[in-house]
Simulated assay, not measured.
Amino acid sequence: MFDRPQPDLYFSQDHLAFRAVLRSFVDREITPNIAAWEDAGRLPRSLYKKAGDLGVMGALYPEEVGGIGGDMFFHVVVSEEISRCGAGGVAASLGSHSIGTPPLVKLGSDALKQQYAVPVIAGDMISALAVTEPGGGSDVAALRTRAVRDGDHYVISGEKTFITSGMQADVFTVAVRTDPDQKGAGGISFILVPGDTPGLSRTPLAKMGWLASDTAHLVFDQCRVPVDNVIGAEGEGFKAAMMNFNNERLTIAIQAYSMAEVCYREALEWAQQRHAFGGPISQQQVIRHKLVDMAARIDAARSLTYDIIWRYQNKMDPLNVHVARTSMAKVTATNAMKFCADEAVQILGGMGFMRGTASERIYREVKVLTIGGGTDEVMKNLAASQLGI
């Protein structure tokens, strides 16, 4: 329904060719294995390497670190096609590098890039971002994890929670407070912490959904990390975190409307095959209206997200407008996903309540995207402040 088979304003022939390769990869390597991966509670490491070989990990990154040097619409292609499998846990774990690695590539030293960014983009290592803490989620400025300078090392103490890929990650991009005398946004830095650092412990967390994604609670108990592992300038981490969040929120919007479309397609196919009262239920007016309402919300969320990305790439909007519209896109897309998952389960009836349908899985996964990357309430407050409301 929403496929773009020809080059247009947003997608070139290169984008479309990349999409075709990824679609085949997802159909062959991912979709048939989702149930096994959900039972295992994680993705196999071999999948990261296969994805790295295709350029999945490097869509947005420059060639000097092993990326393909693509624009944001290459990232759109990756997020949309991975989401076609209908399992948010796969998209989350396979994409954990997309929030863990950008600060490193943009601000890290050449040595750090070669040591960590290159193998992550190649699929040889797994990267994760560690910002959220037990005492505060969306309020990054309130973080309490401390990194105290001790000669040529920082000693890190604190906790992080809800960390995607936290059990498997080989390296963490960790938000810490390097200046305890500063409050709020001041004194926050990003620092790379290798997964085998003494004093780092991980505990798996059980979840409602995203079962193929491992999620962990991390404890840093006097972890010693070289000073050279600081990403960018000390104390400048808050700004980098906020810019990272913008891209994360756009990614969540893409995943959300793509998952909504999975629900739409499954509900449409079911309604066309399911007969009641003398014909397919897709011919019942109430079902037709549900499907049209689903299609409209998906299209609205997708169109808004495409427009934001296109205008960003062409430097058409001031930063406050970009941040506000990105927040709006996340809310719009996750609400579309919520609506479509609910309607799809209703259309499928009893089958919608059964494990094995994509709509049932997505129905359980709706809430995490309305929370992760900033709750709906925080997004609306952020948009209001950026627009001067």
Rank of each mutant, 00 (worst) to 15 (best):
F2W: 09
L9W: 11
F11V: 04
R23C: 11
R28P: 07
I30F: 00
W37D: 02
W37E: 01
A40E: 12
L43G: 02
S46Q: 06
S46A: 08
L54V: 03
L54F: 01
G55S: 07
A59M: 07
A59L: 06
E63C: 04
G66F: 02
I68A: 10
G69Q: 05
G70M: 00
F73K: 00
E81L: 05
S83F: 01
R84T: 03
C85Q: 03
G86N: 01
A92Y: 00
G100D: 01
T101E: 06
D110Q: 15
L112F: 01
Q114W: 07
A117H: 06
V120R: 03
I121C: 07
I121F: 12
V131L: 15
T132N: 14
G137I: 10
A141C: 13
L143F: 13
R144F: 11
T145C: 15
R146M: 15
V148I: 15
G151Q: 12
I156H: 08
I156W: 04
T164R: 07
M167C: 09
D170Y: 12
V174Q: 13
A185T: 15
G186E: 13
I188N: 08
L192N: 04
T203V: 12
L205M: 13
L211K: 14
F220D: 13
Q222I: 11
Q222S: 15
C223D: 09
P226K: 10
V227I: 09
G232F: 06
G237P: 07
A240F: 01
A240L: 00
A241H: 05
M242Q: 10
M243I: 08
N247E: 13
E248V: 03
L250T: 08
I252P: 03
Q255G: 08
M259D: 08
E261V: 05
V262E: 06
A267F: 01
L268Q: 11
A271H: 01
Q273P: 01
K290F: 05
L291R: 03
L291G: 09
D293K: 07
A296P: 02
R297K: 14
T305F: 02
T305Q: 06
T305M: 07
R311I: 04
K315V: 11
L319V: 14
N320W: 12
H322W: 11
H322R: 13
R325Y: 08
V331M: 05
M337L: 04
A344S: 13
Q346N: 12
G349K: 10
M351C: 09
T357L: 08
E360R: 14
E360P: 04
R361G: 05
I362Y: 08
Y363Q: 13
K367S: 15
V368Q: 07
M379F: 09
L382V: 06
A384D: 10
G388M: 14
